[in-house]
């Protein structure tokens, strides 16, 4: 294998270990963190099933953001919706054989997935241009948006400017997944795109982006409002 291929195989596996290990570490950490107080954000259902159902609705609608700030909701909801279609566009490169409806939906998924830079630029501009958002924006807020923007632009350049050999790329990715790495395609735009995704993989579990899983392990959103019926025992306080 070429030095470049060895480098990319090594850094990819390091990225996978850090991403999945980091994800497990953070999520298990959230799950094991004791919640000494009953602090659901009311109004909240009084049963576990009601809370689960509400969580599904919250994830699908971003209800809290909708109630808080409509303009932010437009950008945030738009971004996550587009990311779903970007995910669908990429699955075909990771699944072998390609399952049935995936190939048929690609042209439609492209129409929406290609919009990725729009919500990112909008959310960045909102942070930079509105005084009260600039006040509370840190470097990490801009970094996450800029990283996703660079990934999106390099990815779109692969689709619309510098076509790569998709079969070679898929073979490379499958090789990594099957623990039998092959040569990396030496296509500059692909290497840029792939390297940026690796940066995202290393960064994801230890950044604000961990909200992807953490949102489901937050006491304020996931506790039932059952304080009148069930005694909440402080896990280190005994009786």
């Amino acid at each position: 294998m070429s030095a470049l291929s060895l480098f990319y195989a090594g850094i990819s596996y390091a990225g996978a270990v850090v991403f999945f290990g980091g994800l497990a570490y953070k999520l298990i950490g959230y799950a094991l963190t004791p919640s000494p107080l009953k602090i659901p954000l009311t109004p909240q259902p009084a049963s576990a099933a009601g809370v689960a159902w509400k969580a599904v609705g919250s994830i699908l609608s971003f209800r809290a953001l909708w109630n808080g700030d409509r303009w932010t909701w437009v950008g945030g909801y738009g971004l996550h919706l587009v990311l779903v279609f970007v995910f669908i566009r990429h699955l075909r490169l990771f699944l072998s054989p390609v399952p049935w409806p995936l190939a048929d939906v690609q042209p439609f998924a492209l129409l929406i997935g290609a919009l990725l830079p729009l919500p990112l630029v909008y959310l960045m501009a909102r942070r930079a241009a509105v005084d009260r958002y600039r006040q509370i924006s840190s470097g990490a807020d801009y970094f996450a948006l800029a990283l996703l923007l660079l990934i999106g632009l390099s990815g779109l350049s692969l689709k619309f400017l510098f076509h790569a050999d998709v079969v070679g790329i898929k073979e490379f990715l499958l090789g990594l997944m099957l623990l039998s790495p092959v040569e990396v395609p030496e296509h500059p735009a692909f290497l840029v795109h792939f390297s940026l995704v690796l940066v995202l993989g290393f960064y994801f579990p230890f950044s604000k982006l961990i909200h992807a899983g953490g949102v489901l392990l937050s006491p304020t959103t996931m506790q039932a409002d059952d304080a009148p019926d069930v005694r909440h025992v402080n896990p280190w306080g005994g009786q």
Binding site: E171, F172, L174, M177, L178, L179, S180, V182
Partner: peptide
């Protein structure tokens, strides 16, 4: 679907 440690299809 493909088996680990095998050459990618």
């Amino acid at each position: 679907a493909n088996g680990l440690f095998k050459k990618p299809p």
